[in-house]
């Protein structure tokens, strides 16, 4: 178990404005020395959610504790385990998930210990501010939830796993707008999966080259037309969210089920994969200095 101090977390989730993070995120918290929550921080909360089961902090806290326990000493491996389970626990719409205040609340009031455990730099000794409050591909919880959201295939979370295979490739892919087209995201994940399966050396650099090439090609090619996706059934997601009222907590040793809102069109992915493979083959490979994926500096 971690040596971090305990956190006195609230029972229900809420919204915490970005300004409150700027003001109250102390060095002591970032360094994991003290997770005391000043009353001013509690007062800065914009809104606490009504008492719906899906907004209960308990299940999230349990997950986080299990992750810190399971992956003690190999923290980067926690992401791939946590991402689908956090997504299936925090059942919400994209509109709700796009509100940065929710992620601020999780990082500042629910599980600052997890943020520090996962992202404390080995040299700096602190976790960066952006891990508490920041873009969806950087913030400690948002990156996990959104990776599951963007790479799942309907209710199937399996494609999320290869995505997390190469830590430093994650950042280069997740911010790209091209992956908002689901077949594009799926095709890239399939290639990453192949690289992992074949044990290709310098695979991260390949992934970087791939994402750069696809992003550039996306300036002249419209993948939505080349590989049309099937529509997303938003009502199915609403049903899945409603089910959370009586759903059991997520399983630890097998993947949970995501919202059954429509699988990605396989034909579309099949069209894109060879195209992307070709882009990857032609892309210049720039071998970058090997970085410790665990190091967050």
């Amino acid at each position: 178990m971690s040596e971090l101090p305990a956190v006195d977390f609230p029972a229900v989730l809420g919204l915490l404005p970005d300004t409150a993070v700027t003001k109250h995120l102390s060095h002591a918290v970032q360094a994991g020395k003290d997770f005391f929550v000043p009353s001013a921080l509690r007062r800065a909360v914009d809104a606490e959610f009504e008492d719906q089961p899906r907004w209960h902090v308990g299940p999230v806290r349990v997950l986080v504790d299990e992750a810190m326990d399971r992956f003690e000493g190999r923290r980067s491996k926690a992401d791939v385990w946590l991402a689908p389970r956090l997504h299936a626990t925090l059942r919400m719409t994209r509109a709700e998930a796009a509100d940065s205040r929710l992620w601020n609340y999780l990082a500042m009031l629910v599980a600052p210990d997890y943020v520090v455990w996962r992202h404390r730099g080995s040299k700096s000794g602190i976790a960066k501010t952006s891990r508490f409050s920041g873009r969806h591909d950087l913030q400690a919880f948002a990156r996990l939830w959104w990776s599951a959201e963007l790479f799942r295939d309907g209710s199937d979370y399996r494609p999320v796993e290869p995505f997390w295979a190469y830590q430093d490739a994650v950042n280069s892919i997740m911010r790209l707008e091209i992956i908002d087209h689901r077949p594009t995201a799926a095709a890239m994940v399939r290639i990453v999966e192949r690289l992992a399966n074949e044990g290709v050396p310098n695979a991260s650099d390949h992934v970087n080259g791939l994402s750069k090439a696809v992003n550039a090609a996306g300036s002249t090619l419209v993948f939505d037309v080349i590989a049309p996706d099937s529509p997303v059934d938003h009502d199915a997601r609403l049903d899945w969210i409603a089910e959370s009222a009586h759903a059991a907590e997520v399983p630890w040793d097998r993947l949970p089920d995501g919202p059954d809102d429509g699988a990605v069109d396989k034909r579309a992915v099949d069209v894109l994969v060879p195209m992307f493979e070709k882009l990857l083959a032609e892309a210049p490979l720039r071998v970058r200095s090997k970085k410790d994926a665990d190091d967050d500096d």
Partner: peptide, 11 residues
């Protein structure tokens, strides 16, 4: 139709 903050793109 797209929005960056929700990573949505529909056509």
């Amino acid at each position: 139709l797209s929005e960056n903050s929700t990573n949505v793109r529909s056509t």
